[in-house]
Nucleic acid binder design. Structure first.
Lengths: 152, 152
DNA sequence: AGCATATACTTAATATGTTAACTAAATCAA
DNA sequence: TTGATTTAGTTAACATATTAAGTATATGCT
C-alpha cells in the first residue's frame, strides 16, 4: 500500500505520479538523448562532461575556471579536477592572469582544437538525426519550454 | 577563434550553438527544477537519488533491485551501494526470494513510510508552485514533448 | 602600512555515475 | 547429471557531484 496516498486502493495512480514527476521526465529524456552521443565521445575517451568543457572553451574562448564552470553547469570542485585531468592529457593550457594572481586563464591546445574538428561532424550528424526523428517544430517548441523553465 | 566553425568571424553563432545544445538545455532546466526540491530533501539528509528510490519503492511496491534501478534511471552498481546505505539507515528491508536465491526483494520500512508522509506535502507544494509559475498548459505540453523524446 | 574581510580556487570526504571484473545461482544442452 | 552458458548482483577503479574546509591573493577600512 502506498503511504503517500493512502486512499488509493491500487498503485496505478501513484505509479503515474512517479513517472509524471518533472525531474524524472527531464532525466529520462536527457538519458535517451545522451545514449546517442556517448558512443561518439567514448571513441575518443571523452566523457560527456569533458566534451562540454572543451566545447565551452571553443565557444567562449579563453576564460577563468569559475566562468567556465558556470557555462558548463558544473560545480567548481568538479571543474577543478576535470581541468587538471584535461591539462594532463594535453587538451587545456593555463596562462597566468597578470591582473589577478589567484586565477589563471584557460584555453584549448592545438590538439584539443583538432579533436573538436574530428568529433564535431559526428556530433552534428547525430543531432540532425534526432532533429529529423523528433521533428524540427516540436524541437523548437521543446527548447522554448526548457528555456522558460530555466527562468522560474 | 572557434575551430569547429572557422568561417564564423565572431563567436556569437558558436555560443548560441553551445547554449542551444539539447543535452545542455535539458540539464539546465533540470538543475533549475531541482534547486527548488533539494532544500526540502536535505533537511531530511536525503539526496535527490535517495528520494527517487524511496518514492519508487512506495509506488511500485516490493521489487528486486534491477527493476528498481530501471524505474529510477540509475545503474545497478549505483543502486547496489545506495540500497546498502538506505538499509543501514533503516529505510529499506530485504526479503529473500524463494524463487531465485540470487536476488532478494526490497521494501520500505515503517520509518521510510513515515518519512515519505513527512516529506511529500512539502514536495507537493513545491511542485504546485512550479506548476503555477510555469503554467499548467505549458507544463502538460512539456511533458508531452519529453515523453516523445524518450521514444526516439 | 596593517588588519579584517572577501574573493578565487583547491583539497578533502563522501555519494553517485560509469565501465569492467568478479561471484553465485539458475538454466540449458549433451 | 554434468559442464557450459546465462543471469542477478556485488565489488573495484576511476570520474564526477556535492558540501565543507583550507590556502593564497585582493580589496577595503582605519
Amino acid at each position: 500500500m502506498n503511504v503517500a496516498n493512502i486512499e488509493v486502493k491500487d498503485k496505478t495512480l501513484k505509479i503515474r505520479d512517479f513517472e509524471h514527476s518533472l525531474p524524472m521526465a527531464l532525466l529520462r529524456a536527457r538519458e535517451t538523448v545522451m545514449q546517442h552521443f556517448r558512443p561518439i565521445l567514448s571513441e575518443h575517451d571523452l566523457t560527456e562532461q569533458n566534451w562540454r568543457v572543451l566545447r565551452a572553451l571553443d565557444s567562449f574562448g579563453e576564460t577563468d575556471i569559475s566562468t567556465l564552470a558556470k557555462h558548463c553547469c558544473v560545480l567548481l570542485p568538479s571543474m577543478s579536477g576535470m581541468v587538471k585531468r584535461l591539462e594532463a592529457r594535453g587538451y587545456i593550457e593555463r596562462t597566468s592572469n597578470s591582473q589577478d594572481q589567484r586565477s589563471s586563464l584557460l584555453s584549448l591546445t592545438e590538439s584539443a582544437q583538432q579533436l573538436i574538428l574530428d568529433v564535431s561532424p559526428h556530433s552534428e550528424a547525430t543531432y540532425k538525426a534526432i532533429e529529423e526523428s523528433f521533428g524540427k517544430e516540436d524541437l523548437e517548441k521543446l527548447y522554448e519550454l526548457l528555456f522558460k523553465l530555466e527562468k522560474i
